[in-house]
């Protein structure tokens, strides 16, 4: 029985890997979003991410780690910069975790250098990117 459960778990999930730019499939909706299948922490507020995913489908979520994003007032510029990009469907800021969540259409390519430039235009630094597919 245990072997069957293990096989099922491996067949349902993808392994998340370390790296500056990663692509992963999201666990299907209804599951917790804070811990990945291999135990790695996503480091995004699960409630905030859950709310962000509401109404989204066939999308990619860029989870961007940002340094220097210490206040709401100064993070507003990040939101404004991304909203100028017609590819961006939705954006949210997780101040407590230092993350920016950006939803793109499934067909669009996500350019980390472009993201870094947008963040830098507001005076902060983007350090890591993870891409989730829903």
């Amino acid at each position: 029985m245990i072997r069957i459960i293990v096989i099922l778990l491996f067949s349902m999930t993808n392994v998340w890997a370390d790296g500056k730019e990663q692509k992963n499939e999201m666990p299907h909706t209804g599951h917790s979003f804070d811990t990945l299948v291999d135990g790695e922490k996503l480091e995004v507020d699960p409630d905030r991410l859950g709310a962000f995913l509401q109404g989204l489908s066939d999308s990619q979520i860029a989870v961007i780690s940002v340094q220097g994003m210490v206040c709401d007032f100064c993070a507003r510029g990040i939101e404004k910069m991304f909203k100028l990009d017609p590819k961006v469907k939705k954006i949210d800021i997780d101040l407590s975790k230092g993350k920016v969540l950006v939803a793109y259409s499934d067909e669009d390519s996500i350019d980390f250098n472009d993201i870094k430039q947008k963040i830098l235009s507001n005076g902060q630094n983007a350090t890591h990117l993870k891409i989730l597919r829903i």
Binding site: Q67, G68, M69, V70, C74, G98, G123, Q124, N125
Partner: peptide, 12 residues
């Protein structure tokens, strides 16, 4: 003019 800025995980 911004002369210098240091961003870190929890501060600027």
């Amino acid at each position: 003019y911004l002369l210098n800025r240091k961003n870190s995980q929890h501060s600027q």
